[in-house]
Write a protein that binds this DNA or RNA. Structure first.
Lengths: 148, 148
DNA sequence: TTGACAAGTTAGACACAACTAACTATATTC
DNA sequence: GAATATAGTTAGTTGTGTCTAACTTGTCAA
C-alpha cells in the first residue's frame, strides 16, 4: 500500500502545491486552509493527506501538523515552477487577464513535463531580454481597440 | 438525463476530438478506431458514445455509424484548434520534440479557454511574421550543444 | 445459407475523487 | 476545569471513467 510510484494525479499535485504555498506564506498548512485554498470539503483533504503520506511526500499524523518531506518539497517546487512559468507566459507574453491566467495555469501545469517547462522558462527570459518584449501585447490590444 | 450542460469533461473532449479527426481522414469513425486512437478498451467507448449522444454532440445508435451533430462539429473544431495552437507553440517556438509536444498538447488542450486560444493563435502568426522567428530555438539548442 | 470471425455491447468490478452527515479530538474562554 | 466552539476524521454515498469476461450482432466467404 505504500504507493511510492512516480506519477501523481492532477488532484494530488494540487494538494501538494497548496501545502507548499501555504507553508511558504509563513503559516503552518492546516487541513482547513488546504480545503479553502482548493475549494473542496474538509473530508476530501483527509483522504488526500493519507495518500500523500503513503507516497512519502508529507509528514502527517491525524490531528497533527502537516509538513513536506524532502521529496515532497522537491516535487512541490517543480509543480510550482511549472505553474509560475505558464502563468507568466499567459500574462506577460499573451496579455491574458490575471485571474484567467491563474485558472488555466492551474489546470495546464499537470500537462507539461520537465523539458517543456525548462524551454518555456528559458523562452520567458529570452523574450524579456529583447527591446520589443511586449510588442505582441500592444499589437493584440490595438486589434481589439480598432474592432470596438 | 439529457445532460445538455455546457462543460465537457477532459475525457469526453478527447472522445469528441478523436471522432472529429477520424471523420476528417475520410473513413467513418468506428467504435474500434476510437478505442485504438485513444488507447482505451472498446467498452469504454460505448459509454462515452452514450454520454456524447445525451449531450446531442453525436448521432449514434447501437451498432450504427457515428457522426457529429452540428453542435458536436463546432465543439470538436474548437478543441482541435486549441490542440493545434498548443502543439504549434511547443514545436515551432519552443522547439519541443514532436511526440512530447503532441502528448502535452493533448492534456493541456482541456485547460485553455477561448481567450487564451485566440491570443495564442494570434501570437503564433505574429512571431511567424518576424525575421528572427526561430531565434529562440537556435539559441536554446546552442545552449545544449555547449553543455554537452 | 450457414459457420466463423470481427465489431459492438452488457454486466459487473474497481479506483479515484468528490460530497454530506455525524462523530471525535483539540483549543479557547469564562 | 467544565462548557463550548472549531478543526479534523469516519462512514457511507455518488459520479466518472476505466477495465475484463462474456454475450450479441453483423458481415463475409465457402
Amino acid at each position: 500500500m505504500s504507493e511510492t510510484g512516480k506519477q501523481l494525479s492532477a488532484s494530488l499535485e494540487d494538494y501538494l502545491e497548496a501545502i507548499f504555498l501555504l507553508s511558504q506564506s509563513g503559516k503552518v498548512a492546516r487541513s482547513k486552509d488546504i480545503a479553502e485554498h482548493l475549494g473542496v470539503a474538509r473530508p476530501s483533504v483527509t483522504g488526500a493527506l493519507r495518500s500523500l503520506t503513503s507516497r512519502r511526500l508529507i509528514h502527517y499524523k491525524p490531528y497533527g501538523y502537516i509538513t513536506l518531506t524532502e521529496k515532497g518539497l522537491r516535487m512541490a517546487g517543480k509543480i510550482s515552477r511549472r505553474h509560475a512559468a505558464l502563468e507568466s507566459f499567459f500574462v506577460d507574453i499573451l496579455g491574458v487577464e490575471h485571474a484567467a491566467a491563474e485558472r488555466a495555469a492551474c489546470m495546464a501545469e499537470h500537462a507539461v513535463g520537465g523539458d517543456i517547462t525548462a524551454r518555456l522558462t528559458a523562452y520567458l527570459d529570452f523574450v524579456a531580454g529583447q527591446q520589443d518584449a511586449d510588442a505582441f501585447k500592444l499589437y493584440y490590444d490595438s486589434l481589439r481597440n480598432v474592432q470596438s
